[in-house]
């Protein structure tokens, strides 16, 4: 038995050493990424200086053209949206960004599944925050999702879990990024294969209290600089699912712009790439409409 425990201890020590070495190496690669999503993430968190910050999911990434916003409002603008992410990741990123600078306005693109509704595993929203775990505010986000993350994050390698290929590729030979101030346009026409048949709407929506908590935290943190937007969706949207957010906005005086059922966009194949995402033409048109609305209502001072 003694022999077993000695060998097990040696193995554990070796694993800890390798964990430290690989973790630090990946940290170096991430900090020195030359392109790709790793560089974009590093830039957003550590270097970004902008007047208007666009946040949200892939619908943010593909729907808001910062160039149009800058040309119209004469303010710098950056699209920091991240595919498959919602309020939990965005709040964490804003904590890091706002340690360094405060934008004049933050436009948050809302998607009910990622920002309000329950029934999801919130671990997925922590992925992009893992390398920044040492920030105290980020640590608290991890613990709010899962207390055991505290132990998992003791591993330096685990911080790059699922990202090793991306981090290495972006350090050695990044795939050329076609983004424009964070915006990634979707070229081409509507892909009808991706249109889903409408399913019956649920009677009662179940909300995730953690997501609502972070919505409230975001509002408090941004102190009147926040604008919530629901960008166009081909299907249209049952707006009862965003009612809690609309109520919060009404109560706290936060601008809430809803384009989800705008007849100009709903079922208009010209403007969409798939059921959830605008194509380049749609994105430009929507950004112009958004800027028009912001100007008319004097939402950015």
């Amino acid at each position: 038995m003694k022999n077993f425990f000695i060998k097990l201890s040696i193995l554990c020590v070796l694993i800890v050493c390798i964990d430290l070495f690989v973790g630090k190496t990946l940290n170096f690669m991430q900090s020195n990424a030359k392109g790709g999503m790793t560089y974009r993430d590093k830039f957003i968190c550590n270097e970004l200086e902008t007047d208007i910050l666009l946040c949200g999911s892939s619908r943010c990434v593909h729907h808001y053209n910062p160039k149009i916003i800058t040309d119209s409002l004469h303010l710098t603008c950056y699209n920091s949206g991240q595919d498959g992410n919602g309020i939990i990741m965005t709040y964490g990123r804003l904590e890091i960004i706002m340690d360094r600078m405060t934008p004049k306005a933050i436009v948050y693109d809302v998607i009910p599944e990622f920002d309000l509704l329950g029934g999801e595993d919130n671990h997925k929203y922590l992925t992009w925050l893992k390398p920044y775990y040492d920030h105290e505010s980020i640590k608290n986000i991890f613990l709010s999702v899962d207390k055991t993350e505290r132990f998992k994050m003791m591993s330096q390698m685990y911080r790059y879990n699922s990202h090793i290929i991306e981090v290495m590729a972006d350090f050695i030979h990044p795939i050329i990024n076609t983004e424009d101030n964070g915006y990634v346009k979707l070229e081409g026409e509507m892909d009808k294969l991706k249109i889903k048949e409408s399913s019956p709407l649920p009677q009662n929506y179940i909300y995730d209290p953690l997501k609502l908590e972070y919505i409230n935290k975001l509002i408090d943190k941004t102190e009147g600089k926040l604008i919530f937007v629901v960008s166009p969706i081909w299907y249209g949207m049952d707006t009862t699912q965003i009612k809690p957010l609309m109520d919060i906005c009404k109560q706290k005086g936060i601008p809430f712009l809803d384009f989800s059922n705008d007849s100009k966009y709903v079922h208009n194949d010209l403007y969409f790439k798939d059921g959830n995402h605008l194509n380049e033409r749609g994105a430009d048109e929507f950004t112009r409409d958004l800027v028009g609305k912001i100007n008319r209502d004097h939402l950015i001072h």
Binding site: I15, I18, D19, V22, D121, H123, K124, K152, S155, M157, Y158, Y160, N161, S162, I164
Partner: peptide, 12 residues
């Protein structure tokens, strides 16, 4: 194998 589990495993 341990390193691969830590780097590429799904831990939810």
């Amino acid at each position: 194998v341990l390193v691969m589990i830590l780097l590429t495993g799904v831990f939810d």
